[in-house]
Amino acid sequence: MSIEETPVAPAPAVPDPAVFAEEWESWHRERDARLADPHGWLAITALHWLSDEPQTFSGAPGRWSTGPEGVVVELDAGTELVVGSETVRGRHLFGVVPERGGVDAVWEDTVIEVAKRGGHDVIRPRHPGHPARTAFTGTPAYAPDPRWVVEGRYEVFEAPRPTTVGASVEGLRHVYDAPGRVVFRLDGREFALTAFNGHAPGTLTVLFTDATSGVTTYAANRSLAVDVSGPGDAVVLDFNRAVNLPCAYTDFATCPLPPAENRLPVAVEAGERIPRERGPVGGPSE
């Protein structure tokens, strides 16, 4: 998967507590609304890996395969998909899907995502009636606290560093170009986190774990968006907006794991916590 897109909102240097909490609540509601979209991450019913042998899969019509020309589906008579603005029947060639790219094909009320992850072509049906979506009641999170808004600096590498990381799917690897790192202080200690390019221009994505991981926050990873569009190298890290990646909610995601150097030895008691769907969440602040 691509690194989860999250909105970036710069925090004020000395935020008014009431305004700070209100802005965070609005942001958090928007996050949950995107998760609960009828064809969002919670609607995925399966992750199917394609091969050169045509195969049928639950939740998707036709027979699917991949080869030198890319992903192909062979639809049964009377079955059709809508790809972009085109209605397709019979044999349809999606072509070569770029790494971390994807194409959506609509079949009745299901959206079938055709994608490439870690060099492998996959399809993921997304159905609005999937129980993971219909039962979703929101993501637990720590109460917003301005103390977790910290200043830092962005150090650009001389050249982007290709960085290989693991994935939430065993055996899969992702490679990202790291343009630099973010340096900051917590509890009197200095830390540095390798950063990847964000979705929006002028933003970075930082994947990390900390001492809360596997205890009150999701074990594998969390993500933080950092705005670097301002002048100079000064940045703000608002850990209140540390978010779960899709793999925290579904086993059908292929999320990247943090680089080894991004494992913080301190407890970042801020941001999103373990989803209720993944088990009990301890502590009083949800």
Score class of each variant (00 low, 15 high):
63 R>F: 06
176 Y>D: 00
55 Q>V: 07
94 F>T: 08
42 L>G: 14
126 R>W: 06
209 T>Q: 00
86 E>L: 00
192 A>L: 12
13 A>V: 05
60 A>I: 01
40 G>L: 06
19 V>H: 05
263 R>H: 14
141 A>K: 08
168 S>M: 04
186 L>D: 05
277 E>A: 06
186 L>K: 00
77 A>N: 09
156 V>E: 15
114 V>C: 01
241 R>Y: 06
145 D>H: 02
226 V>K: 03
137 T>Q: 12
54 P>C: 10
178 A>H: 14
224 L>V: 12
145 D>E: 09
218 Y>H: 06
30 E>S: 08
223 S>E: 08
79 T>S: 13
44 I>V: 15
169 V>A: 04
270 A>S: 06
284 P>N: 03
3 I>L: 12
87 T>R: 09
281 V>W: 06
137 T>H: 04
74 E>L: 04
262 N>W: 04
35 L>I: 14
231 P>K: 02
121 D>V: 06
100 R>V: 07
23 E>D: 12
71 V>P: 05
268 V>N: 11
213 S>A: 07
41 W>H: 11
6 T>N: 09
89 R>A: 04
246 P>Q: 03
153 R>D: 15
241 R>Q: 09
118 G>F: 06
25 E>C: 04
32 D>E: 11
33 A>F: 09
189 R>L: 15
43 A>S: 11
46 A>Y: 04
191 F>P: 12
199 H>A: 05
75 L>G: 04
162 P>C: 07
220 A>D: 09
269 E>V: 03
146 P>T: 15
255 C>Y: 05
279 G>K: 08
103 V>E: 10
